[in-house]
């Protein structure tokens, strides 16, 4: 039971091009893993493969989530089983209000878990509370999903959805990219508030800055489709000082 997610020798292709070339990673409940690496190293591919986006072809390896094969589940089932992806580029859906999407998703997940659908008033109360937590104005609930939101508002909206859907495994795909320091703090506070002994996080990030606010248990460096270094939080600081160059050179030479 003590393993939430086990990735073994994962290989994946996009448009026929090999991007992931043998990833191994084990995540236990309550842990925060940071995955870092230069652009093009495969970070977003890993997030998308875990969430089940089409167009990503797994050619080798396995992913086991709560003892089940994750890879043969359709994306909505993974979501209902508690896998949440905060998108690098959150999608706009004109005409569909934020609160409606939240309620539909919340109830889909509850039904999946054999629970009753929540009534509208209780749901509204829950949502309003979480909305304050991510410092979003309530009016955002009634606007189209991400429609006309600024970059920072979109990312906070992702955290809001995460807070409401209460997933078990949260994957944040470069949620910190493009944020100013205030928005970054809001995102970090949201994540820290959601940390619990049952829940694990995978933070995919290009910048070390996020890790000043969220202290990871493990840091992994991804280069050329493989994890080339793993360590504790101090590895992030080492990267901050030295950049990615030496890791890439080492990986290329390997």
């Amino acid at each position: 039971m003590n393993t939430l997610l086990r990735i073994e020798n994962l290989h994946a292709r996009v448009d026929g091009k090999a991007i992931l070339k043998g990833i191994d990673l084990t995540v236990k409940p309550g842990e925060v893993h940071a995955i870092m690496g230069p652009n093009g190293s495969g970070k977003s591919t890993l997030s998308n493969v875990l969430a089940g986006r089409s167009g990503y072809e797994v050619t080798e390896g396995t992913v086991t989530y709560r003892g089940q094969n994750l890879l043969d589940q359709p994306p909505e089932q993974r979501a209902r089983e508690g896998v949440f992806l905060a998108f690098q580029y959150p999608v706009e859906i004109p005409g569909v209000s934020n609160i409606y999407l939240l309620k539909a998703a919340y109830n889909a997940i509850r039904r999946h878990r054999g629970l009753n659908e929540v009534d509208a008033l209780d749901f509204l109360k829950l949502v309003k509370e979480k909305t304050r937590m991510v410092d979003l104005d309530e009016q955002f609930l009634y606007r189209g999903v991400n429609e006309g939101f600024s970059g920072g508002e979109k990312k906070r909206n992702e955290i809001l959805q995460m807070a409401i859907l209460e997933p078990t495994l949260c994957i944040l795909d470069e949620t910190d990219s493009g944020l100013d320091i205030d928005a970054l703090k809001v995102v970090a506070n949201g994540v820290n508030a959601l940390r619990s002994p049952e829940r694990a996080f995978i933070l995919v990030t290009h910048y070390q800055r996020l890790l000043d606010y969220i202290k990871p248990d493990h840091v992994h460096v991804l280069a050329h489709g493989r994890i080339v270094r793993s360590g504790d939080a101090s590895l992030a600081h080492e990267l901050e000082r030295k950049g990615y160059g030496w890791i890439e050179a080492a990986a290329a030479g390997a």
Binding site: A51, V91, A104
Partner: peptide, 24 residues
């Protein structure tokens, strides 16, 4: 496809996602 995947990642079936988008 992006809109559909986004909705599926939030736990909705593809059918419901399309309905929701068309209705919106």
């Amino acid at each position: 496809e992006d809109q559909l995947f986004f909705c599926q990642q939030r736990g909705l079936s593809a059918e419901d996602a399309v309905s929701m988008i068309v209705n919106g």
